[in-house]
C-alpha cells in the first residue's frame, strides 16, 4: 500500500506541484515553439509522454545493468542521450509508417524531442533520486503528462494573446513569456500539495 502511495505521490508531484515545465524548467524550448494550436500541442504532449516513459525505462535498465555494475557511472550522460536518440529515431520510423498524419503534423518537432531537456532531465532525476524501475517509469510518464498539461493550457492562452493588441517590442516571444510567467504563478498555488 505504501508503495502504491509513493507511486501516486510521484504522479501528483510531477504533474502539479513540481510540474516539469512551469516549476522545474525542463522542456522549455518546444513549449515555446510548438504550442499555438491545441490539437498540435496535445499530439506533441502525447508523443513526449510516450518517449519519456520509454526513455525512463530504458535508461534505468542501462544504468542498473550496465553502468553501475561496471563502475561506468561517468558515462551516464553519453549513454542516456544515445538511448534517447535511438528511442526517438524508432518512434519516428514507427509513426511514419503507422500514423503518417501525426508524423506530418509534428514535423521537425519529432526529432527535436531528442533535445528536449525534459526527457534527459527525467532520466537523470530518476537516477539521482534512486527510484526503482516502476517508480522511474511513473515519474517519466507523469512528467510527460505535466508537460502535456502545461503546453495545452499554454496553447489556449496563446490563441487569445495572438488576437490582442500588443506593444511593438513585446510582440512575438516576450508577451508569450510573460503569459507563461503568469501560468507559472498560478501553478505555484499547488506547492505543498501532499495528498499521498
Amino acid at each position: 500500500m505504501d508503495y502504491i502511495n509513493s507511486l501516486l505521490g510521484i504522479l501528483l508531484s510531477a504533474v502539479l506541484t513540481e510540474n516539469f515545465i512551469l516549476v522545474k524548467f525542463y522542456g522549455i524550448c518546444p513549449f515555446m515553439g510548438v504550442s499555438k494550436k491545441i490539437d498540435t500541442a496535445l499530439g506533441m504532449g502525447m508523443a513526449v509522454t510516450f518517449v519519456m516513459a520509454l526513455a525512463s525505462a530504458a535508461t534505468w535498465a542501462v544504468n542498473a545493468f550496465l553502468l553501475v555494475p561496471f563502475g561506468l557511472t561517468y558515462m551516464q550522460t553519453v549513454a542516456f542521450i544515445l538511448v534517447i536518440a535511438s528511442i526517438v529515431q524508432v518512434v519516428e520510423m514507427f509513426l511514419k509508417k503507422s500514423v503518417p498524419a501525426l508524423y506530418q503534423a509534428l514535423g521537425i518537432f519529432l526529432p527535436l524531442i531528442t533535445t528536449n531537456c525534459a526527457v534527459l532531465g527525467v532520466a537523470l532525476v530518476n537516477v539521482q533520486k534512486g527510484y526503482d524501475f516502476l517508480q522511474s517509469v511513473v515519474n517519466g510518464a507523469a512528467g510527460g503528462l505535466g508537460f502535456t498539461l502545461a503546453i495545452v493550457l499554454f496553447a489556449s492562452l496563446r490563441q487569445r494573446v495572438d488576437k490582442a493588441d500588443v506593444p511593438k517590442c513585446f510582440q512575438g516571444f516576450p508577451i508569450t513569456l510573460i503569459a507563461a510567467g503568469l501560468l507559472a504563478l498560478a501553478f505555484m498555488g499547488f506547492s505543498g500539495l501532499k495528498v499521498f
Binding site: 512551469l22 524548467f25 513585446f170 516576450p174 513569456l177 510573460i178 510567467g181 507559472a184
Partner: peptide, 12 residues
C-alpha cells in the same frame, strides 16, 4: 519560476 519567465520576457 514566475520571475524567470517575466524577466526573460522583458529582456527580449
Amino acid at each position: 519560476p514566475v520571475g524567470g519567465f517575466l524577466t526573460l520576457g522583458f529582456v527580449i
